Simulated assay, not measured.
Amino acid sequence: MGRVTERRRVLRIRDGVVGHRADTLVAEEPLEIRLNGRPLAITMRTPGDDFALAVGFLVSEGVLASADDVASVVYCAGATADGHNTYNVVDVALAPGVPLPDIALERNVYTSSSCGLCGKASLDAVRTATRMPPLDPGIPRLTPELLSGLPDRLRAAQRVFDRTGGLHAAALFDGGGELLDVREDVGRHNAVDKLVGRALREGLLPLAGRVLMVSGRASFELVQKAVMAGIPVLAAVSAPSSLAVDLAAESGLTLVGFLRGSSMNVYAGESRFSFADTPEGARS
């Protein structure tokens, strides 16, 4: 299988000193996702957790809701010229009776590592999905203190980032702030798909009462993936997009952006917050 990191020779210039050295880079390779043998999507990703990535992607598209929907997940023969498997093609076979969705019949999709799949079909998948339960508006109960500690916990768990400096991460926390899982990838949406896919394969969906923390910004695609996995809270260290805020408000998801230390903006779902420990006059 592909490697998570690769080494490249670079010319390094530091304070007027010039020299060559080996540098560690995050690996990026294409992954073709097939559904019942038919090509469905190609995403640029960091190799690893490919099966989880594939099924997590299908959760966000409204295709899968539980492990029982999956008959098998296998690598296909995406071979090189010398006949070796590239491990860059994954086929997900649906269990008998699971309907083949329109997205498999109408289109093939390319998603980049920086921007996941986004379009009318993705939006419709969220707005018309009936297989996922609605998000509980009161769970989990959040405090600013609980959320303020999540970025440091996420950063401390980023093992590959420490070697490359070029990797995004997504982490899943319980309602008390305990880290449950973390995945890294060159793309934020891929890291989330890997988290969700692992949860589906372990029979843990929907992820009620969980908090999803991501590096970078909060895009529409990430809100979509959280909602489809039943995650009620999405927190990001940077800004959300307008469509992300709209979808979060429409879906009942709590969306937090610019989460840095004790500062944060709550863009939707503030009903889950408790300010019992906030001093009088400290809120406006």
Rank of each mutant, 00 (worst) to 15 (best):
R14T: 13
L25A: 02
A156P: 07
G261M: 06
I42L: 10
P144I: 02
P140S: 10
A171K: 06
L172K: 10
S251T: 12
H84K: 13
T254N: 07
R7M: 14
P137N: 10
L247H: 04
C115E: 14
L147W: 04
E6M: 12
G2W: 09
V74N: 12
V266D: 01
I42G: 05
P96S: 08
L179F: 08
T164Q: 08
H189G: 09
A282Q: 12
V186Q: 07
V73L: 09
G165N: 12
G149C: 09
N190M: 11
G216C: 07
V126T: 05
S251H: 05
I139K: 12
E250V: 02
G175I: 05
E280K: 09
R12N: 07
V211M: 07
G252F: 03
L53M: 10
D136N: 10
A229W: 00
V186H: 06
G230Q: 05
A77T: 11
G216M: 07
Y75R: 11
E178S: 15
G78R: 00
G48D: 06
R127L: 15
A156E: 15
A229H: 07
P144K: 01
F161N: 12
G175L: 10
P134H: 09
E61C: 12
D181A: 15
M44C: 00
V90G: 03
Y110T: 13
I33L: 14
K225R: 15
A229R: 04
L195W: 03
L35C: 08
G230T: 09
A41Y: 07
V266F: 09
P144E: 05
P96H: 06
D185T: 02
A170G: 14
P206D: 02
D15A: 14
A54K: 02
A276P: 04
L253V: 05
S238R: 13
T128V: 11
G2Y: 12
P99F: 00
L172H: 03
A276M: 02
V70A: 09
R159L: 13
V89S: 02
V55L: 04
A71T: 00
F273S: 08
L58G: 01
